[in-house]
Amino acid sequence: MRMHNADETCGIAQAAMVLGDWWNVLVLREVARGHVRFDALAAEIGLSRKVLTERLGRLVAQGVLHRSLYQRRPVRYEYLLTDSGTALLPLLVAMQDWGDRWVLGDGSLTATAAEDGAEHARVHALAGTRLPDGLELPGTQGADLPLVAPDAAATVLFTYPGTGIEWGEPPIPGTAGCTLENRLFRDAWPDFQRAGVEVRGISTQLAHEQAEFARVEDVPYPLLSDAGHRLAAALRLPMFRGTGRLRHKRLVLVVDAERTVRHTLFPIDDIPHAVTESLRLAADCTRRA
């Protein structure tokens, strides 16, 4: 592709050269979702083997993906994000947020969702799917933690916009109650423990911000930071932009010991009910385990 000389110092133009066309964007979307093998990528995107081979080759050459051998006879590779590729995840999530709001939605800025909308359909389609292998996020203790507790029969993952935030006036619909939500999970923590259920709270706040909130509020379960948008990109979770930051909309996933999503709660309008219902659903998972 011929570029105008002025494009040589333009970061937008250079990024567009790497992304190329919409097939490259969809390949990166699927790799972020955990579909890292050739046949899985072809099935998810619907590309011919020839075109997919070409696109993967370009992305490897650009340093966005790297190939990792997982089978020698015949030779088979997994395609994994490099540091450069991982740095593109916020861009993918921002594209999704823009599409949800301006193409699939009516342009309204909200932290909730309509029950007949695309975001609702995506979240509820997660039931029955497995979380990607090896997905860990920074925790309040400074170390990366797995999304699913290794020794728990079930784990409740709840996402929220953020705590201790000045939203301004008028408030964005659906943003109030993050501190209340954490307090309700905190107060119900003994019940979750008795049921053999772990809890993880997730927002795009930085780990040190979450750690300070956990200290002040005496939060007993881990808070995980998705500031790099790895979870949002992996599950195509609904987001919105508030106070200059992409934030999770409030939802709950109940995940079993095999990292399979068993139940989804979204949208959440009644926070106390969501906490109680997540305990009931997760406890039922442990009884069936």
Rank of each mutant, 00 (worst) to 15 (best):
W189M: 03
M17G: 09
H273L: 10
G242V: 04
R2E: 10
R183S: 12
R29A: 05
L88P: 00
M17F: 06
L104S: 07
L104F: 14
F185G: 03
H4E: 14
L91S: 12
R101S: 05
L184W: 04
A274W: 02
A15T: 15
P190Y: 11
R280G: 10
D83H: 08
Q193S: 06
T140A: 11
Y77V: 02
A114R: 14
L81T: 07
L206V: 11
A289I: 10
D100Q: 08
H120M: 08
R262L: 03
P150H: 08
Y160D: 03
A282C: 11
Y77T: 00
E258N: 14
A94K: 08
K249H: 06
L80C: 05
L59N: 01
T82L: 01
F213Y: 15
D226N: 08
V123Q: 03
G117M: 03
R76P: 03
G99M: 12
T179M: 07
A32C: 04
L184Q: 13
P222L: 05
S84C: 07
R280I: 02
H66G: 00
D116E: 12
G242C: 09
I202A: 05
I45L: 08
W98L: 14
Y221N: 01
Q193H: 07
R250I: 05
A114Q: 12
A289S: 14
S203F: 02
T243I: 15
L19C: 06
G196V: 12
L65F: 02
L223C: 10
L137H: 06
A232F: 00
R247V: 08
P220D: 11
H35I: 02
T129G: 03
T140M: 06
D133C: 04
R76I: 00
R101E: 12
R259I: 08
I172G: 00
L224Y: 05
S225I: 09
I202H: 04
R101M: 10
A282G: 10
Q141G: 15
Q14F: 04
H273V: 06
W22C: 07
R215F: 05
F192S: 01
A289V: 12
R101N: 05
V75P: 09
V27Y: 00
C10E: 12
R76Q: 15
T53E: 14
D97W: 09
V60E: 13
E119Q: 14
E258V: 11
A149P: 10
A6L: 13
L206A: 14
T260R: 15
A234F: 01
L26G: 00
Y79Q: 04
P146N: 08
W98C: 09
L265V: 09
R122F: 05
D284K: 10
A32P: 00
L147C: 06
C10A: 10
E136P: 01
A207Q: 14
L69G: 00
W102V: 11
D7H: 15
R76Y: 06
R288G: 04
P90C: 12
R55P: 00
V252M: 04
E166T: 13
D270C: 08
E212Q: 13
A233K: 00
D7I: 07
E44F: 03
A114I: 03
